[in-house]
């Protein structure tokens, strides 16, 4: 409870950023808040189920593309609602067909999903609508994007708080510990995972939709950049996907680090990212916090 209140207070504070920061600063805030939501939403599903999903950009890109297609036809709130509905339906279909897969097949499928959607959209744009790129002309300034992201972050805080106190939160903890026990205690595994996957995917879709006006010009290759998926996994895992504030602790410093790295080593950034991804997945799958806790326990046991 106090945790949620502190988080909401921090969000309110960040909302004042545009009054003191320049365009570059606001851009940094937008990136940091975007990745904080992405990592938190990712961890909502992948933390307890331990499915490493690389589908983040599939939903993120779907959100952005929905805006590109609908922004002139519909008022902005309806565009966002449409993005959420499309992301949700997509997640439902994907979830129904993949959540029975074993972990490693799920990773591969989730990675392929973004590529599949990218190719589908490319094919559609080229052969049906006859244009590959699209422009997003919206009267939304960076600060408006930031405020909307902060509002979404507040929704995430409230939803996570609610999950922790509700039946589905207990079900998730049990699934995280032992799926066999969970099923034998009466928990419907498939339904619980599906609900979480859809919820997480809708939030990710909304991040893509809300921050899309930043791009102005979009095409599938820009929007469906696999780096987004990898960054999200690294941030959530390094911070600790099973801890409530883990993804936030991972997202903010890592986003800043990645900004610096990609400016400093533009040619080698992808390699660095790949190495980091492998390192995190193998060495610290439970996050830095959990690793520190383990070390501390070991020390205590020895003392």
């Amino acid at each position: 409870m106090t945790g949620s209140l502190i988080a909401l207070a921090v969000l309110a504070l960040v909302a004042c950023g545009p009054y003191i920061l320049d365009a570059y600063g606001i851009g940094l805030l937008i990136g940091a808040v975007s990745y904080t939501i992405l990592a938190s939403a990712w961890a909502m599903f992948s933390g307890p189920t331990r499915y490493i999903s690389l589908a983040t950009v599939a939903f993120y890109g779907t959100g952005a593309y929905t805006v590109a297609v609908l922004s002139e036809a519909l008022p902005w709130p309806l565009v966002l609602v449409s993005a959420a509905v499309i992301g949700g339906v997509l997640a439902l279909l994907v979830g129904l067909s993949t959540l029975r897969l074993a972990g490693i097949y799920f990773v591969i499928f989730s990675f392929g999903l973004a590529e599949l959607i990218r190719q589908l959209i490319t094919w559609f744009e080229v052969s049906v609508s006859g244009t590959l790129g699209r422009y997003i002309f919206l009267e939304l300034e960076p600060r408006h994007v930031l405020w909307q992201l902060l509002a979404l972050a507040a929704v995430v805080v409230l939803i996570t708080g609610w999950i922790h106190r509700s039946r589905i939160g207990l079900a998730l903890k049990v699934i995280g510990d032992d799926e066999t026990v969970a099923a034998h205690a009466g928990i419907n595994l498939a339904r619980t995972k599906l609900i979480l996957f859809v919820l997480s995917s809708v939030l990710i879709t909304l991040v893509g939709a809300i921050q899309s006006p930043r791009w102005v010009y979009v095409e599938p290759g820009i929007v469906f950049n696999p780096q987004v998926s990898f960054l999200t996994v690294i941030m959530a895992l390094l911070g600790g996907a099973t801890k409530r504030w883990g993804p936030v602790l991972g997202a903010v410093p890592l986003f800043l680090l990645f900004e610096w790295l990609s400016a400093r080593f533009p040619d080698h950034f992808s390699i660095l990212l790949g190495l980091l991804f492998i390192g995190v997945v193998f060495l610290l799958p439970d996050g830095v916090l959990a690793a520190i806790e383990k070390l501390r326990k070991k020390k205590e046991a020895r003392a």
Partner: peptide
């Protein structure tokens, strides 16, 4: 919590 689980989902 361990023991609550089947009570909650039973």
């Amino acid at each position: 919590e361990n023991v609550m689980v089947p009570a909650a989902f039973g």
